[in-house]
Write a protein that binds this DNA or RNA. Sequence first.
DNA 1: ATAATATGTGACTATTTAGTCACTTGTCAA
DNA 2: TTGACAAGTGACTAAATAGTCACATATTAT
Lengths: 100, 100
Amino acid sequence: MLPVDEVFRALADPTRRGLLDALLARDGQTLGELQQRLPMTRFGVMKHLRVLEKAGLVVTRRRGREKLHFLNPVPIRLIHDRWVGKYAEPRALALVSVTR
Amino acid sequence: MLPVDEVFRALADPTRRGLLDALLARDGQTLGELQQRLPMTRFGVMKHLRVLEKAGLVVTRRRGREKLHFLNPVPIRLIHDRWVGKYAEPRALALVSVTR
DNA sequence: ATAATATGTGACTATTTAGTCACTTGTCAA
DNA sequence: TTGACAAGTGACTAAATAGTCACATATTAT
């Protein structure tokens, strides 16, 4: 799967976007901490975190028996620059409003 | 399903992002035209287009027996402004690079 | 050592999703 | 008005996904 594709797929799930939000609010949380806010077992949360990690949106570091999760905004920025940009820029908006 | 959620889900599929790209290149294409570039029957394309339309990313207009598809960049811009922005802005990047 | 804690693995189920197909509806043109 | 053309519907299959559970591993503290 292409990297950009993995990022889009990872962002498709609201639970995963919520996890990113949680890390944006407080970075470096453990699995247990991240699970507490969610109506889901830690296994479900673990799977979501792995998807985010594979997509490069989350990086981890072990501290003893804990695993700390850190947000990595770079992939989002890449999507922003290379993909969202061409739709969000005024040119596209004008083009459509004229064509319709 | 929340509107923002529908947009993210719609963007998750590479075929659907390809359809948006095709419309960005030339707006107002019919189902048949959009299908030609894809290794898929028109039924598959139809389903993808319906997902895009429900998410508000594509709007349509009938012309006789044809259905014209137009790109609507507004939802992408909303995601850009309200969601991507808070990750793509320098603050988030700096925050993470300090915390790790 | 041992008990509690934090995370990991593999198998499993249920749901959703992608894609196809036979058949239908609506529209244009000869 | 009849035949060709563009799009739509409902049922169906195959694959991916979300989520759980029993069990296992690694680490900390007593």
